[in-house]
Structure formats: C-alpha cells, structure tokens
Design a protein around this nucleic acid. Structure first.
Lengths: 135, 135
DNA sequence: GCTATTTTGGTACTTTAGTATGAGTCATTT
DNA sequence: AAATGACTCATACTAAAGTACCAAAATAGC
C-alpha cells in the first residue's frame, strides 16, 4: 500500500517535471520534440519494468497444475485430495479424520493412487507428482 | 530471441509513429504537448511492464538453500544427506545401500533428524524442510 | 432404469517406519 | 589424556504404511 502511493507520487512528480522541461526547451528551441519523446519513453519503459519487478514477489508458485495429466493418469478427485494431504505430511489416520472417512478408505485410495503414479512410497508419490506438475 | 527482435521492432515502429503524430499535432495546434507526453508515458509504462512479465519465465528455482538454518537446527552433514534422500523418495534400506551404511544407521539418523526438525513422519520432514528453505 | 465408475469400508497380512537404548569407533577440542 | 560430538551398528519393540481381496453404497452417464 505505502509502496504504491510512493510509486505513483514519484511518477506524478516526474511527469510534472518533464512538462516543465519540455515547455522551456521547446520555447527556447534548444531541444527538439523527438528527443524529449525518446527520453520520456525510455524513462517510463524502465519505470514499467521496475514496477513489475516488485509486484510478483507475493506469489511465487507459478507452476500451473496440469489438470490434464491428472485425468490422463486416471486419478480421481478423492485420490487427488488424498495426494495433497500426503504432501502436507499427514498420516492415513489424520487424512481420514480430516475427510470424515475411515483409515481403511484412505489406505485403499492411497494404494490405488500409487499404482496410477507407479510408485511404492508416499514420499515417492510426492516427488513424482511435483515433477509431473500435478502438485 | 525471435521475441526480442519482434519486441524491439514494435517499439521502434511505435516511436516513429508517435514522432509523426506529435509533429503533425503540434504544427496543427490541435493537441498540446502535455497530452502527448502523458500518452507516451502511459504507453511505455505498459510496454515496460509487459516486457518484464515475459522475462522471468526462464529461471525457476530461486530458492536459495539456507545453510545457516541447517546448522542452527544442529543438523549434521550425514543427517542432511539422508534428508535429501528421503525427499527423493527412497526407503531407509535404499538410503543405506546408497550411502554404504546399514539400515540401522539410517534409522538412527532419521530419528535424530526428526527430533531436530520437530516432526513425526518423513513426509512432514520434507514439507517442513522446504518451508524452511533447507531443501 | 441400468451400467460404469467412484467412493466407501472391512479383514488379514507383510513390509517399512520410527523409537528407545546401549555401545563402539574416530577425529577434534580442551 | 580426557571429553566432546559425529557416525556407526545392533536389538527389541511399537506404530504406521502398504497390499490383497472382497463387497456394498453412492454417483454419474447413457
């Protein structure tokens, strides 16, 4: 918030300053209009780049989840939900409690999930899923 | 590469176009200089933002491993090595084979590691380690 | 309605994982 | 030389994890 205000204040001041410079320069005839435009263009080009460099700091995970690959592997919604919970470090019992199902059900899902992912352990499942961009 | 060439071509053409427009407008006296500067500023502000949005797609892994945090948690070299293997999805037996130690040794390291990381499961260890930027 | 898939759950079993405890080796530090 | 810390290994045990096989609801699709 504060940064945004400062940024726009700076831009406004810069603009006003440029107005004055351009006016004086043109009336004096010392600098031609093309130079002024070029300078402004370059300045604001860099301001734009600078602005966008700051902004995407908040969100980092720009890895898009590959929904197609999930379905192509035949992974169902429930199985995927459990995969997420596994990656968060929960045990089968904990997952069952969170999803209001028994541990047996979770185990069944996990077992089916591993077959579809072609893995043997949950740590492997997490690693492979992240490689496949489905997590 | 192609994109860069296209981008700069577009910018050059835009600039030339703006030169012409500004010239005609000023000679005709229909538009004042302030408006032109403002328009150019806005246009190049967005060009700059657009340019920088495209660029950082190449590099992905900007997560620097926090070596200080590893030592501050008291995690030894061997324990860290095993942590890496865990995150790669290997079992204790497999890790032992890869590091030429017995499964017992791996278990001991894993147990000590979990205490230092304050976790109960290996999936939790991986998740927490990535949160702490030590993996 | 009927079929196919998903989701659910159970039992029984094998395999890993993880804890606790003790102990020996080796290199470094005091 | 003695203490320290890291690495090693073993035994014994408990607790999860994972497999196999089966079966009944629930849901989606035709």
């Amino acid at each position: 918030m504060k940064k945004t205000i400062i940024t726009f204040s700076m831009i406004s001041i810069s603009l006003l300053g440029l107005f004055q410079i351009s006016k004086y320069s043109i009336t004096k005839g010392s600098i031609n209009i093309e130079s002024i435009i070029a300078i402004i263009a370059v300045i604001f080009l860099f301001i734009g780049m600078w602005l966008n460099k700051k902004s995407p700091k908040e969100k980092k995970s720009d890895t898009i989840i590959n929904t197609e690959r999930i379905s192509s592997l035949g992974i169902s919604e429930r199985e995927y939900k459990i995969l997420q919970k596994i990656s968060e470090g929960y045990s089968n019992k904990e997952i069952g409690d969170q999803l209001y199902v028994s541990e047996s059900t979770v185990k069944t899902h996990v077992s089916n999930l591993f077959q579809k992912l072609d893995v043997k352990r949950r740590t492997q499942a997490v690693q492979k899923s992240k490689d496949l961009n489905i997590l």
